[in-house]
Each structure stands twice: as C-alpha cells, then as structure tokens.
Write a protein that binds this DNA or RNA. Structure first.
Length: 805
RNA sequence: GGAAGCUUAGCUCAGCUGGUAGAGCGUCUGCCUUACAAGCAGAGGGUCAUAGGUUCGAGUCCUAUAGCUUCCACCA
C-alpha cells in the first residue's frame, strides 16, 4: 500500500541501492538484442563540484538511455571523466600549490589521477543521486593508462599512414601558456588599440610612403609592402623597393589584391608572422620568414634595441623612438578584434616552431561529407558543422609544449635525427623515461625524447574507442562503429565532434556515430547561461535534489525543446513537485481498485473506457514519434496531457462505476478496473524515463509483483495495437464538453459540484452520446437528460435546494 | 561582412506535411466533491514582430524589413 504522502527522500535512496545491487542497468555485450551505444561526454574535472549545467544535460542523456532501454535495446551508457587538459592541470596545481617547473611529468600525471580519485566519487554520487542509469562502476579517465595507450596507438597508426607529420610551420602560439594551440581554442575579443601611421622610405627617391599599423614592434620582421594593383595613387611604386623606418631594411613593393585601398593608408606592411593574413601571404609570395617574437612572448635579437622586451613594452618603446625620429605622423585610438587564448585570455602570436600536425586540410571534402551523413538533432546544427569545415585553414596541430598530458611515443636519434616510434605492445610509454629497444640505422643508440605532449583533443577524439574498450578490451578498434549517439552541447560542435569525426575517418573511414544530439544551455531569467562564475546558480544540484527530489530536478531538465536554451525558475520546480504528488494520488486511487481487476480485456468494455484506452494509444504514438526525434520534452508533454485528461475527466467518470457496482453493475466496474489500471501502467512506463524513482515505487508495489518483474525500467513499454478510432475521440470530446458545461454552470452559480441537476437538455450533439448517458449522469449528478436536434446548446436546470439560496 | 536560430496570451513556451489560436504559471471567481485544499471547477486574456506575395483559405509556404541570440570572418 502506498502512503498518503509521497516521501521522496526514503524512496529515492531505496531504489538507488536496489538498482545498484541488482545491476538493473548493467550492459551485457553478449546480449543479442540490438545495441544502442552512447558516446557520453566525460565531464571535465576542473573543480570539486558539478553544476546545474551538468545536471541539465546529463539528465537529458539519461532520459534517452532509459527510453532506448524501454524500447528493447541493449543500451550501453558509459561514463568517463576528462582530466587530461589544462583545466584539470590548473585545478591540481592550484589546490596543492605545485611548482610544476621542477616536476616530472609522470609524477604530475599521478597526482592528477589521484586527485580524480577524490573528485570522482563526488561526481558519481551526484549522478547516482539523480538516478542516472550510466555505468558508474566502470568509468574511464582521459589520462588513465588505457586512454593513453589508445591515444598513442592512434598517433602511431596515423603516423604510419602518413597522416601525421612534424613540420616547421606557422603555429598559433600562446606566449602566456607557452604552448601551441589549435584554432578551436581561440576566442576573439574586442580590445582597444592604437593605429600608428608611420613613414617608410623609397629607395632612390625622396618620397615617403605612409603605412598604418597596430603592431609597429614587428617592424624588424617586415619582409615586404603590399599595394592593391588597382590603386592609382600608388601605382608608380610597383617594382620599387621600400625602406623600413628605424631598421632601414629594404623590402620589395608588391601588388596584392588582398590589400584593400580603403583600409589604413591602402599600403600594408607584411611581417611574418604578425597575424594569419601575414601567414597566408608568406606562403603565397614565398616570402622569407623572420621572427621578431620568441616563444616566451619576448622580442628576439632580430628586433635590435627591443630585444628581450615583452611585446607591449616593445610596442611602446618603438612608438617613442618613431616619434623622436619624426617617423610617426598620426595616431588613432581604435578598437579591434584580437585573437586570444580561451584558457588564459592572453593575445595569440603566430610563431614558426616544429610541431606535430594531423592532415585535415587535404581531407576537407571527406569531413564535409561526414557532416552530411550524420543525423543532427536539431538539424540546423549541421550547418554549423559544415560552416566550420568550410572555414578550415590550418592542419590540426596536436603538439603542446606542456608538461601535463599524454606524451608522444616518439624519440629522435641524437646523431641523424631520425624519428623512432614506440612499439604498440609497449604502450603507453613516456619517452622521457624509456628508450627505444634497438639502435638507430645510423648506428647511434642515443635518443632524444619528444618532450611535448598531445593536445587533449587528440585523446578525447577517441572516446568512441575508449568507451567501447571498457567492455571489449580491444583497444583502438572499429567493431563497434558507428556508435548510436553522441550527445553534446553546441559549443562542442567544432571541437569534440569535429575531431572525433576526423579521427574516425582517418583510422577507419567510418562514421563515429549515427546521431548527434545538441543540447542547449540552462539559463537564468535574463537568458544568461547558468554558471558558477556568473553566480547565477540559485541552487546547486545537490541542494536541488535534497530540497525538491531527483525526480523534480529531472522533470525540469527534460521539459525542453531540443537544442533550445531553457530558463530555470523556481516555479518550474513547484510545478514538477505538484505533478509528482498528483501521480502519487491518482495511482493510489487506481491501485485501491486493483483487486479483482481483469488481466485481459473484458468483453463489452464501456464506451468511455474504450475512449480513454484509445487516447492512450494516440498518446503512445505521439510519444514515440517525438522520442524518435529526441524531442524528450515534447514527448513528456504528450504523456502529461493524457495524464491530466485521465485525472480530470476519466477518473471522475469511472469513479462512480468503481464505487457503486450495485448501481451501475459489476460488468461496468470490471471495465473501469481494467481501463484505469491499463492507463496507469502505460503512463507510468512513459513517465519512468523522466521520473524513475516515483514510477518504480508505484510499479514495483503493484504491477511489478504480478509477474515478478525486477524493475519498471526493464519492463518495456505497453504493446498496444495502433488502431485509432477517431469517432471515439470525437465522442470523448463531446462528453468532456458537456461535463465542462455542467461544471461551469455550477461554478457560476456558486454551488458545490455535487449539487444535483434536475434536467439537462442536450441539443445538437451526436446520437452516440446516448450510449454514455449513465456516465454523464453520474459525473454531473444529473437526474434527467433530454436530447434535441438543432444548433449546439446545453441547457441546465439545477435542483431547487434551500441551502443554495 | 557571411551563416543559423528566435520573435505566438502579463511570464515561460507548444503548435508536425497550410483549414475557424493551445498548455502551464500568474490573475480573477467559486467549491471541503468517498485519490488529491501543496486540491478541484470555472472565467478573463492574443489583429500569432512588420510589410508584401502564393492560395478558396497562412501562426504554418515564399520575399523583403526590423529587433534579439549564437557561430564564423574581419587584426594594415
């Protein structure tokens, strides 16, 4: 028997234990049913707690996982933790106040892995307390040995395929972090700057050439001057030689249509490597490479008197000097967009350093095609991916000059410089700690280890393989590809999704997954993303679960439109709490009549019972239609709509037959018992993917016991035929209309709903209404009904009662 | 500058392949009705951003405009 009030605290904890002890959600790879595999995003370990956003997006994934499980799939819903990257590194460094300059890499990795052992249970507890059905007993970490092995194996295989090479090439460089970074790690921010107008000289001429620049400190690296070929004002200069101020370097004047006549003075100086455009020009015009900035963000010797200065100091110093020498004739304050490193917000430089690159530019078309092949939910997200692929300009630089990360399995021969790779069976290796087994072909047996580490995405892009390896132990392997689903937020389209597709194509020429679901953000009333740094998180996930229950939190997180941001308000929580209590109450009512309920459909079902069963069929169809599109919120609304219809209208009708078989007949009672329990069972199953605790509690107290079932979550949805009877729907609508009219009339006359109706005149309704006369009479407390033809109308006369006056 | 999405009741949002505007919350009124007063019933409230077009008929399709959001590009 269910208690009067639903006590979520004890109930939720009870089922968590039960689910874990009985391995309810355990994935069995041997199971013959079709698999549904999820490439779960591993949460980044960058702080001691999870936030609202995690709860929001992982709930949606869990709803999908539960739905597929209920639909008969063998569902694999793994979980991992991402601690291979700067955020985790920074977190540990800060927490223990580490001086990492003097640390060994392996030591640091060990510390990060240890720290994860502290954090992981906290994350796992929250996941558990939210009722997530993921495999928390077998998680991966993106820096653990297995992941390192797969990541290094991927490197070796792609190297052997010729898809990876070490090139001395332009690299996006963060002087603050002192590492190369990828295009996807860049944020562009608007910053104030100064446009400096300076004079260049012309060889064998007294003419002065006016040039505008925001980066005068790069003057020493100036290799040429561009002028638009259409530019008549400057056309006499083509083929001549310009002389840079201060350094007096002679550089050619070249016609270049990229030089815009209306920008600056129309004359551009090109400094390798000032920015991306300079880079392109360097390649196109085969210009010499001159480096004015070094890896630590200071000026090189090339810059002469600026040498050793930081970029900004150098800029001020050279402006001073230009002013002194009267080579600077104008300055303008401007704001412009600057590329910055998203992790540290420092301005990016472009340097030429030897780095490891994965070929992506030459695979652009294949990647584009893969984007087309993938099912994106919502579909508009596909465009974003394709746009990104279209705009690719760089190969994927996977080396980072960090201490922390997955090392390259690479050594260089000290004598001839030849690249030596580790053997796959020896992985994972740290080249700093070990040496190749054989000496080099040149006879040398001394090696220099590659000290760089791989970009974190070089490993994260292998999560399909890392996930499946947890159960198959087959390492880098394509048996499981494509996985069914990659769920993620939209900020990851051009990063994690992109790189995963790249790796999967390069390794196996296969799609990593069939479907990609992009979730929106949880936002506050103003539309700002809820995050700890913004301080707009009203309740932590833990508080939410404690104060409102996991089911309430989950309801809020699943009541969404796919890809749309969802506002978090306290009202929504109240709403969900009410729905849950209502489910409890309605269930109590239905269950109290479960004794003696027919297990199979009785003959001669009452019309209104047929009607509500018909409504259940319609709802199930709509529910599944929406779930197929991953519209979990719309599917939920379908069930809710049915549920309220069931409570407000059907129960009120069935009540009378259930309470008074002596008046309405035993058969009519059996009919209502059958229909109400079928409805409850069907609705609980659909609700179960959103609110797994309360539904389990009710189900296992009743229906589950009949067939000794282990859990509602393994019970599957109701199998109903799909014969929809539209006439029944119409009839039901008419009945609801009539009942509503009676209720409204009583309401307007300020009388209780149980006040009897002396006479009810129904005009213009279908003949069939007569079939449900006794139900209408019962629910409206109507003594007599008259039927008339004509324009639709309902006329009500109440029984005269002194107490009503 | 390029791309995508959004603009429907006071608020948060549904409205699939075109056919007389929907839900929840909030507001107002009434009701202790053998599941539920943290409940129930009822009422009010919208020229579906704007302007054109296609159509017998458009919130729904097409074109343009405006506002908001996001992504990309723009460092001389």
């Amino acid at each position: 028997m269910l208690e009067k009030k639903y006590n979520y605290k004890t109930v939720e904890e009870k089922w968590h234990n039960y689910w874990n002890e009985n391995n309810i959600y355990k994935f069995n790879p041997q199971d013959k049913r079709p698999k549904y595999t999820i490439d779960t995003p591993p949460p980044t370990i960058s702080g001691p707690n999870l936030h609202t956003g995690h709860m929001f997006s992982y709930t949606q994934i869990d709803v999908i996982a539960r739905h597929k499980r209920m639909s008969g799939y063998n569902v694999y819903f793994p979980m991992g933790f991402d601690n291979n990257g700067l955020p985790s590194y920074r977190f540990v460094q800060k927490k223990y106040n580490l001086h990492t300059d003097s640390m060994e890499r392996s030591e640091l990795v060990k510390m990060c892995l240890n720290e994860m052992k502290n954090i992981q249970p906290i994350y796992a507890n929250l996941f558990n307390s939210l009722g997530f059905s993921c495999a928390l007993d077998n998680c991966y970490s993106t820096i653990d040995e297995k992941s390192q092995k797969i990541s290094q194996q991927s490197f070796i295989e792609l190297y052997n395929k010729g898809e990876i090479s070490r090139k001395n090439s332009a690299t996006l460089w963060c002087p603050e972090c002192r590492t190369a970074i990828a295009l996807s790690e860049i944020d562009t921010v608007e910053k104030p700057s100064v446009m400096n107008y300076i004079y260049f000289g012309i060889k064998d001429s007294d003419e002065k050439l006016e040039i505008a620049t925001t980066r005068p400190e790069l003057l020493s690296a100036c290799v040429c001057v561009f002028i638009n070929p259409e530019d008549k004002k400057h056309s006499h200069l083509f083929g001549k030689t310009a002389i840079s101020p201060i350094y007096n370097i002679e550089v050619p004047i070249i016609a270049n249509p990229d030089a815009l006549m209306d920008k600056g003075t129309g004359v551009v100086m090109c400094c390798t490597f000032g920015d991306e455009a300079d880079m392109q020009w360097q390649k196109t015009y085969n210009l010499p490479i001159k480096e004015a900035i070094s890896a630590n963000g200071r000026m090189t010797e090339l810059s002469g008197f600026l040498s050793g200065m930081k970029v900004k100091d150098a800029r001020n110093a050279i402006i001073e000097k230009l002013k002194q020498e009267k080579l600077l004739y104008k300055q303008e304050e401007i704001t412009h967009l600057v590329a910055t490193h998203e992790r540290c917000s420092h301005e990016i430089e472009i340097l030429s350093k030897p780095q490891w690159f994965i070929n992506i530019l030459e695979h652009k078309e294949e990647i584009y095609q893969a984007g087309l092949k993938c099912n994106w939910y919502p579909n508009a997200m596909q465009k974003r991916f394709l746009n990104w692929v279209d705009g690719l300009k760089w190969d994927w630089c996977i080396s980072r000059q960090n201490l922390y990360g997955v090392p390259f399995p690479v050594w260089y021969c000290k004598k001839c410089g030849k690249i030596h790779l580790a053997n796959v069976q020896d992985l994972p290796v740290d080249p700093v700690k070990t040496q190749p087994k054989n000496s080099c072909e040149c006879g040398c047996s001394e090696f220099e280890p590659e000290k760089d580490v791989m970009d974190t995405w070089a490993t994260s892009s292998l999560t399909p393989e890392i996930c499946m390896n947890l159960v198959t132990n087959k390492g880098l392997n394509d048996e499981h590809l494509p996985m069914s689903l990659r769920p993620t937020a939209h900020d990851n389209i051009r990063v994690w999704n992109f790189y995963t597709i790249v790796k999967s194509l390069l390794h196996f020429n296969k799609m990593p997954w069939n479907d990609v679901v992009i979730s929106g953000y949880a936002v506050d009333e103003k539309g700002d993303k809820i995050s700890k740094s913004k301080g707009n998180e009203k309740l932590t996930p833990q508080q939410l679960v404690e104060q409102y229950s996991a089911d309430v939190a989950r309801y809020w997180a699943s009541n969404i439109s796919i890809g749309q941001d969802t506002t978090f308000t306290m009202e929504q929580l109240t709403n969900a709490s009410k729905l849950i209590q209502k489910i409890w109450n309605a269930s109590k009512f239905v269950i109290s009549f479960l004794d003696g309920a027919p297990k199979t459909e009785p003959e001669n079902l009452e019309v209104m019972d047929k009607w509500i069963i018909n409504e259940l069929k319609i709802t199930q169809q709509n529910f599944h239609k929406n779930m197929l599109k991953y519209e979990i919120g719309l599917a939920l609304k379908e069930v809710e709509k049915l549920f309220w219809n069931f409570c407000d209208n059907y129960i009120e009708i069935a009540k009378n037959r259930l309470y008074k078989p002596e008046v309405y007949g035993e058969k009519a009672k059996l009919s209502a018992q059958y229909a109400s329990s079928l409805l409850l069972r069907g609705m609980l199953k659909m609700f179960s993917i959103y609110m797994p605790h309360i539904t389990e509690e009710i189900y296992m107290d009743t229906f589950g016991q009949v067939n000794n079932e282990k859990s509602i979550h393994l019970s599957g949805y109701l199998q109903l035929d799909d014969n929809i009877d539209n006439d029944l729907t119409k009839l039901g609508e008419e009945v609801v209309e009539i009942v509503s009219a009676i209720r409204g009339f009583k309401s307007q006359n300020n009388v209780s709903l149980k006040t009897e109706v002396e006479n009810l005149v129904i005009t213009g309704y279908s003949e069939k209404i007569k079939q449900v006369e006794k139900d209408i009479k019962a629910v409206g407390a109507v003594k007599n009904i008259e039927y008339k033809d004509g324009e639709k109308n309902i006329d009500i006369t109440l029984v005269f009662d002194e107490t009503n006056n």
